[in-house]
């Protein structure tokens, strides 16, 4: 009898928690799950906005596999992503080491340092557009000051991807810094004390103590940064619109143009599915790599 009433109470408590999540479940199904399912459905149709739709099975995917313009966006996106992950990791670790020290006005300086990642990307992109101007831009002025020949920045097919990655790096290095800074704050002090007694120098301490300890956190930063860099849209679209030609057309830009310039909804939905698979695959590879690192330690 007592047991039964206890069980009943436990059951009603379980139910009570359902009421907490029910509104969110409803909202999430409406704005997140419904779009996923609908995207899958549309990707199997030949569908133009304003036109009629026709079921075509996997034809959209077959077409994508042979679409040279689409295929060229994949290595381009990976190149952009590689730059936008590696540079922030290196610079972010350096910045975290700096902010881990004590100095006057540290809070204020840190606030300024993280401002780029909270700023409106469109606004930032517009300012960079003006700074990249080949004749009048302030960046080329700086280059000539230190004796480096002027660059065409986003106006040349050779430099457009690194230039756009530069903006991405400028904006998102603070996120890596914050993650590493949190990791540094949690480190034990004992290994450093014994290393000092053993006469280790700063670099050795970083290389053999700090780096292995922050590596798991660094991998989190790498995963987040990879996912976000793959999806980068605002900066590329505002600064170069995928140009010159298609030299900076990443998967996301290609996708946007298919959907909202050419209004090929079925085709674009197939791109979304492929894009999602690429992001998921990379995320899983990195997660597995992170687990491996943990085991080897």
């Amino acid at each position: 009898m007592a047991l039964a009433s206890h069980r009943k109470k436990g059951y009603s408590r379980q139910n009570a928690y359902l009421w907490f999540i029910a509104p969110a479940v409803l909202a999430i199904f409406a704005v997140i799950v419904f779009p996923w399912v609908y995207t899958l459905w549309m990707s199997l149709h030949d569908w133009q906005i304003g036109g009629k739709s026709e079921f075509v099975g996997i034809e959209n995917f077959v077409k994508l596999a042979t679409d040279a313009r689409f295929l060229s966006t994949i290595p381009r996106t990976l190149y952009f992503t590689l730059l936008s992950v590696l540079l922030p990791v290196v610079l972010g670790v350096f910045a975290a080491e700096v902010f881990h020290q004590k100095f006057p006005l540290r809070g204020l300086v840190r606030g300024i340092y993280i401002a780029p990642m909270m700023a409106t990307p469109v606004a930032i992109a517009l300012v960079f557009t003006m700074m990249f101007h080949p004749q009048l831009g302030v960046l080329n002025y700086f280059l000539t000051l230190v004796g480096i020949p002027k660059s065409l920045w986003v106006y040349s097919a050779d430099t457009v991807i690194p230039t756009l990655a530069l903006v991405e790096v400028w904006q998102w290095t603070p996120l890596v810094m914050l993650i590493v800074l949190g990791a540094l704050a949690s480190l034990p002090t004992e290994p450093y004390e014994s290393a000092l007694i053993d006469g280790a120098n700063q670099w050795q301490m970083f290389r053999y103590i700090t780096f292995p300890l922050i590596l798991p956190f660094l991998m989190i930063a790498v995963i987040i940064r990879t996912i976000d860099a793959l999806k980068s849209f605002d900066i590329i679209y505002v600064i170069s619109q995928g140009g010159p030609g298609t030299a900076s057309e990443t998967i996301n830009i290609f996708l946007y143009l298919q959907a909202f310039s050419f209004l090929r909804i079925g085709h674009a939905s197939a791109v979304v599915v492929v894009f999602f698979v690429i992001i998921l695959a990379l995320a899983i590879i990195l997660l597995v790599a992170r687990e491996r690192l943990r085991w080897n330690r």
């Binding site: 997140i32 549309m42 996708l255 959907a259 909804i265 999602f276 992001i279």
Partner: peptide, 12 residues
């Protein structure tokens, strides 16, 4: 949801 590209919500 966090890793899904924004456009996959936007089109539907």
């Amino acid at each position: 949801a966090r890793i899904t590209p924004g456009l996959s919500y936007l089109i539907p």
